[in-house]
Protein backbone atom coordinates (compact mmCIF):
# COMPACT_ATOMS: atom_id res chain seq x y z
CA UNK A 1 0.00 0.00 0.00
CA UNK A 2 2.66 2.48 1.05
CA UNK A 3 4.73 1.21 -1.86
CA UNK A 4 2.05 1.98 -4.41
CA UNK A 5 1.53 5.34 -2.83
CA UNK A 6 5.21 6.15 -2.80
CA UNK A 7 5.37 5.37 -6.49
CA UNK A 8 2.24 7.41 -7.19
CA UNK A 9 3.79 10.46 -5.61
CA UNK A 10 7.09 9.88 -7.39
CA UNK A 11 5.70 9.76 -10.89
CA UNK A 12 4.63 13.37 -10.87
CA UNK A 13 8.02 14.66 -9.82
CA UNK A 14 10.29 12.49 -11.96
CA UNK A 15 10.66 12.24 -15.73
CA UNK A 16 7.31 10.55 -16.17
CA UNK A 17 4.49 11.91 -18.24
CA UNK A 18 2.77 13.77 -15.43
CA UNK A 19 -0.23 11.50 -15.82
CA UNK A 20 -0.71 9.54 -12.60
CA UNK A 21 0.11 5.86 -13.12
CA UNK A 22 -3.34 4.71 -12.08
CA UNK A 23 -5.09 6.81 -14.69
CA UNK A 24 -2.60 5.87 -17.39
CA UNK A 25 -2.98 2.18 -16.57
CA UNK A 26 -6.77 2.35 -16.73
CA UNK A 27 -6.61 4.06 -20.10
CA UNK A 28 -4.31 1.38 -21.47
CA UNK A 29 -6.82 -1.18 -20.27
CA UNK A 30 -9.69 0.76 -21.83
CA UNK A 31 -7.82 0.91 -25.13
CA UNK A 32 -7.85 -2.87 -25.22
CA UNK A 33 -11.49 -2.91 -24.18
CA UNK A 34 -12.43 -0.55 -27.01
CA UNK A 35 -11.04 -2.94 -29.59
CA UNK A 36 -12.63 -5.92 -27.78
CA UNK A 37 -16.13 -4.49 -28.04
CA UNK A 38 -15.15 -2.98 -31.39
CA UNK A 39 -14.50 -6.44 -32.77
CA UNK A 40 -17.83 -7.73 -31.54
CA UNK A 41 -19.83 -4.69 -32.65
CA UNK A 42 -18.07 -4.51 -36.01
CA UNK A 43 -18.87 -8.15 -36.64
CA UNK A 44 -22.49 -7.56 -35.75
CA UNK A 45 -22.70 -4.59 -38.12
CA UNK A 46 -21.33 -6.72 -40.96
CA UNK A 47 -23.71 -9.60 -40.27
CA UNK A 48 -26.62 -7.21 -39.89
CA UNK A 49 -25.73 -5.64 -43.23
CA UNK A 50 -25.62 -9.04 -44.88
CA UNK A 51 -28.91 -10.16 -43.29
CA UNK A 52 -31.50 -7.37 -43.68
CA UNK A 53 -34.21 -9.78 -42.50
CA UNK A 54 -32.84 -9.57 -38.94
CA UNK A 55 -34.89 -6.42 -38.52
CA UNK A 56 -37.91 -8.65 -37.97
CA UNK A 57 -36.20 -10.35 -35.02
CA UNK A 58 -35.20 -6.99 -33.58
CA UNK A 59 -38.88 -5.99 -33.53
CA UNK A 60 -39.37 -8.46 -30.67
CA UNK A 61 -37.17 -6.47 -28.30
CA UNK A 62 -38.95 -4.15 -25.91
CA UNK A 63 -38.04 -0.58 -26.79
CA UNK A 64 -39.53 0.61 -23.49
CA UNK A 65 -37.30 -1.61 -21.38
CA UNK A 66 -34.27 -0.75 -23.49
CA UNK A 67 -34.92 2.98 -23.11
CA UNK A 68 -35.43 2.73 -19.36
CA UNK A 69 -32.20 0.82 -19.00
CA UNK A 70 -30.34 3.38 -21.10
CA UNK A 71 -31.67 6.07 -18.80
CA UNK A 72 -30.56 4.10 -15.73
CA UNK A 73 -27.04 3.64 -17.03
CA UNK A 74 -26.67 7.25 -18.18
CA UNK A 75 -27.78 8.39 -14.74
CA UNK A 76 -25.33 6.06 -13.01
CA UNK A 77 -22.57 7.72 -15.02
CA UNK A 78 -23.71 11.03 -13.57
CA UNK A 79 -23.75 9.69 -10.01
CA UNK A 80 -20.22 8.26 -10.16
CA UNK A 81 -18.80 11.45 -11.63
CA UNK A 82 -20.57 13.36 -8.85
CA UNK A 83 -18.84 11.05 -6.37
CA UNK A 84 -15.53 12.03 -7.94
CA UNK A 85 -16.44 15.72 -7.77
CA UNK A 86 -17.21 15.22 -4.08
CA UNK A 87 -13.75 13.68 -3.60
CA UNK A 88 -12.21 16.80 -5.07
CA UNK A 89 -14.22 18.96 -2.70
CA UNK A 90 -13.04 16.78 0.19
CA UNK A 91 -16.63 15.80 0.99
CA UNK A 92 -16.31 12.12 1.88
CA UNK A 93 -19.88 11.78 3.13
CA UNK A 94 -21.41 12.96 -0.11
CA UNK A 95 -18.91 10.85 -2.04
CA UNK A 96 -20.22 7.76 -0.24
CA UNK A 97 -23.82 8.68 -1.07
CA UNK A 98 -23.10 9.13 -4.78
CA UNK A 99 -21.08 5.93 -4.87
CA UNK A 100 -23.88 4.05 -3.17
CA UNK A 101 -26.36 5.39 -5.73
CA UNK A 102 -24.08 4.25 -8.53
CA UNK A 103 -23.95 0.73 -7.15
CA UNK A 104 -27.71 0.75 -6.72
CA UNK A 105 -28.28 1.90 -10.30
CA UNK A 106 -25.92 -0.83 -11.48
CA UNK A 107 -28.09 -3.39 -9.76
CA UNK A 108 -31.24 -1.79 -11.17
CA UNK A 109 -29.75 -2.08 -14.66
CA UNK A 110 -28.89 -5.74 -14.16
CA UNK A 111 -32.30 -6.47 -12.62
CA UNK A 112 -34.13 -4.92 -15.57
CA UNK A 113 -31.80 -6.73 -17.98
CA UNK A 114 -32.46 -10.05 -16.22
CA UNK A 115 -36.21 -9.45 -16.40
CA UNK A 116 -35.90 -8.61 -20.08
CA UNK A 117 -33.88 -11.75 -20.82
CA UNK A 118 -36.32 -13.95 -18.95
CA UNK A 119 -39.32 -12.60 -20.89
CA UNK A 120 -37.45 -13.13 -24.14
CA UNK A 121 -36.42 -16.64 -23.20
CA UNK A 122 -40.01 -17.28 -22.06
CA UNK A 123 -41.18 -16.20 -25.52
CA UNK A 124 -38.86 -18.80 -27.03
CA UNK A 125 -36.02 -16.54 -28.14
CA UNK A 126 -32.80 -18.20 -27.04
CA UNK A 127 -29.26 -17.70 -28.38
CA UNK A 128 -29.65 -20.51 -30.92
CA UNK A 129 -32.96 -19.15 -32.30
CA UNK A 130 -31.18 -17.19 -35.00
CA UNK A 131 -28.28 -14.95 -35.87
CA UNK A 132 -29.77 -11.80 -34.41
CA UNK A 133 -30.47 -13.49 -31.08
CA UNK A 134 -26.97 -14.99 -30.95
CA UNK A 135 -25.49 -11.53 -31.25
CA UNK A 136 -28.07 -10.01 -28.93
CA UNK A 137 -27.22 -12.40 -26.11
CA UNK A 138 -23.47 -12.31 -26.78
CA UNK A 139 -23.28 -8.52 -26.82
CA UNK A 140 -25.64 -7.75 -23.95
CA UNK A 141 -24.19 -10.68 -21.99
CA UNK A 142 -20.61 -9.47 -22.35
CA UNK A 143 -21.77 -5.97 -21.46
CA UNK A 144 -23.62 -7.26 -18.41
CA UNK A 145 -20.45 -9.04 -17.26
CA UNK A 146 -18.69 -5.69 -17.47
CA UNK A 147 -21.46 -4.06 -15.45
CA UNK A 148 -21.06 -6.77 -12.80
CA UNK A 149 -17.30 -6.18 -12.68
CA UNK A 150 -17.97 -2.47 -12.28
CA UNK A 151 -20.38 -3.12 -9.43
CA UNK A 152 -17.76 -5.27 -7.69
CA UNK A 153 -15.13 -2.54 -8.05
CA UNK A 154 -17.50 0.16 -6.84
CA UNK A 155 -18.62 -1.97 -3.92
CA UNK A 156 -15.05 -2.61 -2.82
CA UNK A 157 -14.42 1.14 -2.89
CA UNK A 158 -17.67 1.81 -1.05
CA UNK A 159 -16.90 -0.71 1.70
CA UNK A 160 -13.42 0.66 2.23
CA UNK A 161 -14.91 4.17 2.32
CA UNK A 162 -17.41 3.09 4.98
CA UNK A 163 -14.60 1.45 6.96
CA UNK A 164 -12.74 4.76 6.60
CA UNK A 165 -9.81 3.15 4.80
CA UNK A 166 -10.21 4.92 1.45
CA UNK A 167 -8.93 8.33 2.50
CA UNK A 168 -5.40 8.18 1.01
CA UNK A 169 -6.67 6.41 -2.12
CA UNK A 170 -9.77 8.41 -2.91
CA UNK A 171 -8.43 9.13 -6.39
CA UNK A 172 -9.41 5.53 -7.12
CA UNK A 173 -13.00 6.75 -7.43
CA UNK A 174 -11.86 8.49 -10.57
CA UNK A 175 -10.33 5.28 -11.91
CA UNK A 176 -13.47 3.27 -11.17
CA UNK A 177 -15.42 6.07 -12.82
CA UNK A 178 -13.37 5.89 -16.03
CA UNK A 179 -14.20 2.21 -16.34
CA UNK A 180 -17.85 2.76 -15.48
CA UNK A 181 -18.21 5.50 -18.11
CA UNK A 182 -16.65 3.20 -20.67
CA UNK A 183 -19.26 0.55 -19.89
CA UNK A 184 -21.86 3.28 -20.30
CA UNK A 185 -20.45 4.25 -23.70
CA UNK A 186 -20.62 0.64 -24.88
CA UNK A 187 -24.29 0.64 -23.99
CA UNK A 188 -24.78 3.96 -25.79
CA UNK A 189 -23.85 2.06 -28.96
CA UNK A 190 -25.55 -1.24 -28.16
CA UNK A 191 -28.87 0.55 -27.60
CA UNK A 192 -29.35 1.94 -31.13
CA UNK A 193 -27.70 -1.12 -32.69
CA UNK A 194 -30.11 -3.56 -31.11
CA UNK A 195 -33.23 -1.59 -30.22
CA UNK A 196 -33.48 1.30 -32.65
CA UNK A 197 -32.00 0.35 -36.01
Amino acid sequence: MSQTHAIESRTDTLTGTGIPSGRLGVWWFLASEIILFGGLIGTFILFRHGNPEWVAAAEHLSLTIGTINTFVLLTSSLTIVMAFAAVDKGDSRRMRTWLFLTILLGFVFLGIKAFEWSTEIGAGFIPSTGGFWSFYYAMTGLHALHVMAGIVINTILFISAVLDRLKPHEYRIELAGLYWHFVDIVWIFLFPLLYLA
Binding site: S32, I35, G38, G39, L40, G42, T43, L142
Partner: peptide
Protein backbone atom coordinates in the same frame (compact mmCIF):
# COMPACT_ATOMS: atom_id res chain seq x y z
CA UNK B 1 -0.79 -7.36 -27.54
CA UNK B 2 -3.16 -4.91 -25.86
CA UNK B 3 -4.48 -3.55 -29.13
CA UNK B 4 -4.89 -6.83 -30.98
CA UNK B 5 -6.19 -9.34 -28.48
CA UNK B 6 -9.64 -7.79 -28.00
CA UNK B 7 -11.31 -9.10 -31.17
CA UNK B 8 -10.00 -12.58 -30.45
CA UNK B 9 -11.43 -12.47 -26.93
CA UNK B 10 -14.74 -11.51 -28.52
CA UNK B 11 -14.22 -14.36 -30.99
CA UNK B 12 -13.47 -16.78 -28.16
CA UNK B 13 -16.76 -15.82 -26.49
CA UNK B 14 -18.55 -16.46 -29.77
Amino acid sequence: FLLSVGPLIAGAVM
